[in-house]
Design a protein around this nucleic acid. Structure first.
Length: 936
RNA sequence: GGGCGGGUAGCUCAGCGGUAGAGCGCUGGCCUUACAAGCCGGAUGUCGCAGGUUCGAAACCUGUCCCGCCCACCA
């Protein structure tokens, strides 16, 4: 295969689709449950994306991380299972379909439960697979044949089993209490699904309750209360003051009159609820619509007066306000209070507002009967398992967050008033009210009285089934081969935003049902945000679809997707503010390809909480992918017939061949360490640096003169080492950039034992290279000398087409021998006229410019080419810098505290450096005279 | 109100006890037969601020100012 057969630039799109199909066809991603397969397992569960979802940067992030981990382990010979799945996403999915119905002028109630569910399934079959296809575009090597949907029949069975067991064990119960109500979705929410909006500018409204039978001589005859939700006063059943507040002592045991319906409500004393220093020191108490007041009501046995319908309108208890929507009711109540002369003013007030994570509407606390899971008994083992190290976190500061949440956990409200989801397996007797919880699909008669029963209408919180994921996907509650082999899993990788929602719940459920932690490590990545650090959101028009990066897209279409309802110009302006670097990108994203996007995401330190996506950075990594492609394309022209074995690297005698094998050992070791330690940035960085700065910039350049004018023996050795180096480098890079590496690897000479795909080839280890300090030291000298010569050329504007005469001098005979040996290489890289002259130090020839590189003096003859003024400038500038460094070093070395306290190797390094500087300075000072010579 | 993370080159970020790093951007010279998505050079930082510990601090400690996130029932 010669290089002319490959196009000059790498075209990602075509190659990526082709290789993914190839991997699928060869079952490369398949995990094995064969009893004869003795390989160690490596298991990762993919966080199941919502079935309604389409790929966003968060998916791309975890998809990349997990794919790197999984491909690495697969190449290391593990039996890898990356378990993929899709989540039914209760509220989100139901909302999507209900919105469709609305367009047809219908509600789900018009269809009825069964028909509605049929409709959702239909939608799921049609549109629900999109996210899976998109994960594949990214290159995710999950075992797609094992794809699970959280509502699959076997998942339903697992969920029901879990529910029944928890119920039987007394950990699931039904209770009536104040819960968070989403009036838009018309369902209860768990505490976690309520998002607190901070720093909302609200108002504190004050009004007066007249005291019944007030005695004006003893003090106030009314109590002024303050509230941010005036309409809740319709449900007030008490007014509270602090027991020790002298202002109100005379009112203890008295009552106030409700201004609208004339009810008399008690004045209670409560030291918990009331802070006498806040406001008027009087608090209205609405037990049915406020969490504090609910608790207060319990302490004082107050009635709980519910004033709200489930749709957020005021109910009959609200009297004249019945039927009003809650915010309209607020206005009406205020108006009425003003008319009655009870309004006492309004103050601006900074407050927090609880909003539903799903619908965004303000959450109403209401009293309702729901199903709960008792958390304390589940949380304790989950805390213990992290404390004793059975499960570890990376980065580990997240342990604190995890602990804090579990230590203060409240019971989990798991019922939802939705239709789409796992139905609660409980049956209510229509006659005696007895509740039967059963594993069966249906129940014919009440187990207590034999009357008809009706199944509980509610479904479970989506996260309930997610919590069972690591074992429900393996066939639990059956004792399957998969469960035996793949539980617990090894790494749980996800964004830190779902530590509570998912990670903690899997820990609790896994420990409870399996008696063992569900995973050994929790790897938490940061959130992908825009280039200025803002969270990606619709209103900011700063969301980027990873597919637009992979396949390319005009900014017009990018922003239209992000902010569909705004004018393009406005959306575009917002978008460009969020991504300053796109200003240099013209009209849109080019097709970066999946590899470039993956490598970019791998290059961010996973311990940072925010990952500010920079499109220009992706461009840099696309260039790298192209670099890989071209380097291999070039190498292909010279490696034909290479003889490779998997017993180790080819034998090398030439310094650059030994050197690249030594660097290779370091690089592949760093790559594996980076991946193992969840430092993908370090792993990918090591390979990037190796490939570009060492393999391409130095090694490939050094092989060129060998292939054009080396001896046959030199050519053969270099051919084999080069072939080995690129084959190994491709394997090392594969987890990060799977597509381009497969594309090239298939064409590269490789040992006969290699499998059908690079994805199954062994991941390289140190043994694929050959550590060689002597070769590294020698190459270091050569690189320094060549660099110095190039700098001289460049600073004197010598065009690359002009060849120069080069002299290299050293007092060290061994070094001279090296330079002599490599004179052909040096000549090629510096572009000299003939081979450089290597000699012992001697008087400087007239008309040449000198630079000192370590212990080598580099002289470039420039008579006729040189510009004396520039040279003078260069000398003075360099001397100034040397002088500065020397001052610092001398100061340190003359300080006895330093020389006696610092470790010897540090002192020694400083001394050597000082010597080198002194030497360089001396030589350069001599050079000052040169400028005059050059003018001759 | 509690907790956590961050403030390092113009931008996005590594470094976390031994004389400041990367990518992009900037800049000089090059279409040198793998790659102009490239090559060879170059410039760029009182490492948020103030104290302290140390022979030595961007890194450790204390305080302080900004920015962000999470948790929490102050009406």
């Amino acid at each position: 295969m010669s290089m002319s057969e490959l196009p000059k630039s790498y075209e990602a799109a075509e190659a990526e689709a082709r290789w993914f199909a190839f991997w699928a066809e060869h079952g490369v991603f398949r995990a094995s449950v064969e009893p004869s397969d003795r390989r160690k397992t490596y298991v990762v569960s993919m966080p199941p994306p919502n079935v309604t979802g389409s790929l966003h940067m968060g998916h791309a992030m975890f998809g990349t991380i997990q794919d790197v981990l999984v491909r690495h382990k697969r190449m290391q010979g593990f039996n890898v299972l990356w378990q993929p799945g899709v989540d039914h996403a209760g509220i989100a999915t139901q909302t999507v379909v209900e919105r469709q119905l609305k367009r047809e002028g219908k509600t789900r109630h018009d269809l009825g439960r069964e028909a509605f569910l049929a409709r959702v399934w239909e939608w799921k079959e049609k549109s629900g697979g999109r996210i899976v296809e998109q994960m594949k575009v990214l290159g995710c090597s999950a075992d797609w044949e094992r794809l699970k949907f959280t509502l699959d029949a076997d998942m339903q069975r697992a969920v029901r089993e879990a529910f029944v067991r928890l119920y039987e064990d007394g950990l699931i119960y039904r209770a009536t209490r104040l819960v968070n109500w989403d009036v838009a979705a018309q369902t209860v929410l768990s505490d976690l699904e309520v998002e607190i909006e901070e720093n909302v500018q609200g108002e504190l409204y004050e009004f007066a309750y007249p005291v019944v039978d007030a005695d004006a001589s003893k003090g106030a005859t009314e109590l002024v209360v303050a509230t941010t939700r005036p309409e809740t006063m319709l449900g007030d059943t008490a007014v509270a003051v602090h027991p020790d507040d002298p202002r109100y002592t005379h009112l203890h045991r008295k009552k106030v009159r409700h201004p609208f319906d004339g009810r008399e409500i008690p004045i209670v004393t409560d030291g918990v609820l009331v802070d006498p220093k806040f406001g008027t020191g009087v608090v209205k108490v609405t037990p049915a619509h406020d969490f504090n007041d609910f608790a207060t009501g319990k302490r004082h046995s107050l009635p709980e007066l519910n004033i709200m319908n489930l749709d957020g309108t005021i109910n009959a208890a609200g009297g004249e306000f019945a039927g009003l929507e809650r915010f309209a009711a607020r206005k009406a109540v205020k108006k009425r209070l003003a008319e009655l002369g009870l309004e006492r003013g309004t103050k601006p007030h900074q407050m927090t507002l609880p909003r539903s994570q799903r619908s965004g509407t303000v959450v109403e606390p209401i009293i309702s009967t729901q199903w709960f899971v008792k958390m304390k008994p589940l949380a304790e083992p989950a805390l213990a398992a992290v404390k004793d190290g059975r499960t570890t976190f990376l980065p580990e500061d997240w342990v604190k967050t995890y602990n804090h949440w579990l230590e203060n956990i409240d019971d989990w409200c798991i019922s939802r008033q939705l239709w789409w989801g796992h139905r609660i397996p409980a049956f209510h007797c229509t006659k005696c009210g007895h509740v039967t919880v059963t594993r069966e699909d249906t129940l014919a008669k009440c187990e207590k009285c034999g009357s008809d029963v009706a199944q509980d209408p509610d479904v479970l919180d989506t996260w309930f089934s997610s919590g069972l994921w690591p074992f429900s996907t393996m066939g639990w509650p059956d004792k399957t081969a998969a469960l035996e082999r793949f539980y617990p899993s090894d790494d749980m990788s996800t964004g830190y935003d779902i530590i509570f929602f998912w990670v903690a719940r899997m820990m609790m459920m896994g420990l409870y049902f399996m008696g063992e932690v569900p995973f050994r490590r929790v790897l938490l990545n940061g959130l992908v945000v825009d280039e200025t650090g803002e969270k990606m959101s619709k209103t900011k028009a700063n969301s980027i679809d990873p597919l637009d990066l992979i396949h390319g897209a005009d900014f017009d279409s990018v922003v239209q997707k992000a902010l569909p309802d705004a004018p393009i110009a406005e959306a575009l302006a917002k978008f460009k503010r969020a991504y300053p670097s796109v200003a240099q990108l013209g009209k849109g994203f080019p097709a970066y390809g999946a590899d470039a996007v993956r490598l970019t995401l791998s290059s961010y330190s996973p311990q940072s909480r925010r990952i500010a996506l920079s499109p220009k950075r992706i461009e840099g990594y696309r260039h790298f992918c192209n670099k890989i492609y071209n380097a291999v394309r070039f190498a292909l022209g010279n490696v034909e017939g290479a003889e490779l074995s998997d017993a180790g690297p080819p034998k090398a005698t030439l310094v650059y061949n030994r050197w690249i094998l030594s660097r290779l050992a370091t690089a592949v070791e760093a790559a594996s360490a980076g991946i193992d330690d969840f430092r993908l940035d370090e792993g990918s960085g090591a390979l990037y640096h190796f490939f570009w700065d060492e393999l391409c910039a130095w090694y490939l350049e050094l092989t060129k003169p060998v292939f054009t004018s080396g001896t046959e023996e030199e050519r053969r050795e270099t051919r084999d080492v080069l072939a080995h180096a690129i084959e190994t480098a491709l394997r090392a890079l594969h987890p990060f950039v799977p597509f381009v590496t497969e594309e090239l690897w298939q064409r590269v000479p490789r040992p006969a034992s290699r499998p059908v795909s690079i994805a199954l080839a062994p991941y390289p280890t140190r043994a694929d290279g050959n550590a060689d300090d002597a070769a590294e030291a020698d190459m270091g000298q050569l690189m320094l000398a060549i660099g110095a010569a190039r700098t001289i050329r460049s600073e004197h504007d010598v065009p690359p087409s002009s060849k120069v005469h080069l002299r290299l001098r050293s007092a060290d005979p061994a070094l001279r021998a090296l330079l002599e040996r490599e004179s052909r290489s040096i000549a090629a890289l510096v572009r000299t006229e003939g081979d450089p002259v290597v000699e012992a130090p001697a008087p400087r020839p007239r008309g040449s410019v000198l630079s000192v590189a370590g212990s080598i003096e580099v002289l470039v003859e420039l008579r006729g080419l040189v510009q004396p003024e520039k040279e003078a400038e260069r000398i003075e500038r360099t001397l100034k810098k040397l002088e500065k460094d020397l001052t610092v070093l001398t100061k340190r070395l003359t300080d006895p505290k330093f020389t006696s306290n610092a470790p010897p190797e540090v002192v020694k390094a400083a001394e050597e450096q000082k010597q080198s500087i002194v030497h360089q300075r001396a030589r350069l000072e001599e050079e000052r005279g040169l400028v005059e010579e050059l003018k001759e």
